[in-house]
Design a protein around this nucleic acid. Structure first.
Lengths: 227, 227
DNA sequence: GCAAAGAATGAGCAATCGCTCAGGTTTCTC
DNA sequence: GAGAAACCTGAGCGATTGCTCATTCTTTGC
């Protein structure tokens, strides 16, 4: 139940690299389809089409497999966030904010079960340093972006917004929502409201409110879903 | 791993009722202190100070214990939400909204580990009908409240807000935040922003924004923490 | 006071889990 | 093509888990 979480042996031949890939993909597939508690090492090996012995040549423990999946997902998210909030692109604060929310939706809406399992995993595993560092780096990046936009208490705001967004997107995913465009608009409202950026964009009536929220406006902000 | 989730036998004597209570409390205590994966039936019995045989006289399965804890928590939340959004109290929409957010904070901030475990449990267990019904009833109540306030798409908004709030409060709790007052203000901003209720309350500058967010305003909205 | 019902016990079963290891097969290197 | 290195195999070990059941103790109703 304990022990190192770093891969035990580095694959040198192409065959071995494919094996490692198959293990990770099998684990992710099980996570998506059945959840964390149904994921066993024997089953991962079976789905991956290899033997358990082979699995344990590249991963020292079950947790190591899960940690690697989480690490990869986080790395990808961090990169997308970096791209969205990059400077020198001629984009303003609002446009970058859009990109950020877009990245969050792309990363979560597709496999809510996977996202949920990984999220829970994070709170339950004494994860390797790199994975924790990635989490911190994501918050740091968002926080820096907010600070540059003149937002007060950027760290706190980043934590609040990331958590709130995750909750909302996850719930939408579990509820079977697939309209990324509509979800994006609501997420934007949530974030802009929190930040106190009122008015512009899709403003609402001050009174009865909300009557203009429905439907399908412009379009083309979000890319299609993941594979 | 399967089977009915309804209590097996109803306790008739006071002694038995105390036993059932001890089981539930022990399970909750383990959940708070160590999380879902460390909770075993043998351990629950041990912490409760009874034997496993006794435990299985009142609960047909491990899941049944967890389901009952979740059910009780949800029932309590639903009642608090009912009270907060009750009509005929002379309170306006905004005041009721405050009460709603207050209830959410009280229910989540105290034991984030417990809240997280139960939340995860919900997505992983084929829960008894009553627990699922409670979840629906909570959303319905919030949705009805929003509809009465003139909010468009009340069901969608209720789902979004409940999920976003839960995410934000949970993250704050895990981060060790204890200042309910400050958290309440941020949650209020989040919700009001999403709903398009701008301006009133703690309004911000329209431009540079955020500079007035900090600090410690009035006070006294929230009650102290749970036992 | 006594029988019946309710309540509690805990050794231990069957199943499952993460994981090891002794041995085979494939690929690389020269 | 031969030796070495890398890779793969899978039966099964030890530990743990959820849970049962034969038995004993306690309370209730009369």
């Amino acid at each position: 139940m304990s022990g190192p979480i770093v891969p035990r042996k580095t694959p040198r031949q192409a065959r071995a690299r494919a094996t490692v890939e198959a293990i990770l993909e099998a684990a992710a597939r099980i996570l998506v389809a059945e959840g964390l508690e149904r994921l066993t090492t024997n089953r991962v090996a079976e789905v991956a089409g290899i033997s358990i012995g082979t699995l344990y040549q590249y991963f020292p423990s079950k947790e190591a497999i899960l940690a690697e999946i989480l690490r990869a997902k986080r790395q990808q998210l961090l990169e997308d966030i970096r791209a969205a909030t990059a400077e020198g692109t001629g984009q303003g604060f609002e446009a970058r904010l859009s990109g950020l929310i877009e990245a969050a939706i792309v990363h979560q809406l597709g496999q809510p079960t996977l996202a949920r399992s990984l999220e829970y995993l994070d709170s339950l595993l004494p994860l390797e340093a790199e994975t924790q560092a990635l989490k911190a780096a994501i918050l740091e990046r968002v926080s820096g972006f907010l600070a540059r936009g003149g937002i007060a208490r950027p760290e706190e705001s980043a934590r609040d917004l990331v958590a709130a967004l995750r909750g909302m997107i996850d719930a939408a995913g579990l509820a079977g929502e697939t309209d990324r465009e509509a979800l994006f608009r609501r997420a934007m409202r949530l974030v802009r409201g929190y930040l106190g950026l009122e008015g512009s964009g899709f403003a609402l009536d001050r009174d009865a409110s909300g009557a203009e929220l429905s439907g399908d406006e412009p379009g083309g902000i979000l890319p299609p879903g993941p594979p």
